[in-house]
Amino acid sequence: MWSASGRRLRASSANPRADQVKPPPFDYAKPASLSEALELLASDDDAKILAGGQSFVPVLNFRLASPSLLIDINGLAELGRISLVDGGLRLGAIVRYRDLEDSELVAAENPLLAHALHHIAHYQIRNRGTVGGSSSHADPSAEFPAVSALCGAEYVLQSIRGSRVLPADEFFLGALTTALEADEILTEIRFPPWPRDRRWAFEEIAPRLGDFAILGAAVLLDPGETRILVFGAGDRASRLPRAEAALRGRTLDKAAILEAAKLASEEIEPQGDIHATAEYRKAMAEVLVERCLERASGVKVVA
């Protein structure tokens, strides 16, 4: 029998299942400063950074990784800030999705990101998952990396050797692969200023709201430039140069939208998997890009 708080009411005995755990063994450190974390990371080739853990703990539970040491950066307040610098939104690496949802600054300075948050995992996952963690995990169908790539965000990487800043398309190298070296920590993500006259749209197909996207698309319409991005269709979220070029210098009317959507579908080379065939993803790319362009421009394509 147990009391409501779990205190054992009868004599304690050794629990036979207590040693049956899923993750492989590792040591654990919780540094008090970024410099301490960087030193620890540099001193051990098999050490790994632990942020929110909403992508990485499943990896450990499946024993797909066996780090010698987990360096928990959840205590580093310096990486938890949301700020506006030179008109651009800056997100510390351990900013949680929940913090973004609660942030009036995010709603005002990047409405696309604020909208996409509702598609990022579930309530309980957003309460702990971080922007830096999911970016470092680099799932090709994740929403935050896709939004950051479309906006042209920059990723700040630090190590004891110094720091460097990479644009999103040089940070994300492929499925679950980033430019992070073994001794580097992703510390900040910097968005460029959001133009006041910008129009945008975001669409995604997923089995349930909050699941990883089977396919997603987003567009930005600025005076003189249209950006189109598809995610979940390849090894990383990518802008579509041919579809974008078809709209350059052109009035965004029904014919232009249909042509760009068709080019988007032709331009991607998706894989088939357990969730959807490659053909389905191509067909849906056309539909989602058309919907995004229609919504962002206000041009009626489907009666």
């Binding site: 654990y28 703990v57 499943p58 929940r98 309980q124 996952i125 309460n127 702990r128």
Partner: peptide
Amino acid sequence: GRAMRSCLMFAVQ
């Protein structure tokens, strides 16, 4: 105060 997955956190955390 926040709902979280206890399978995605370590006890030491």
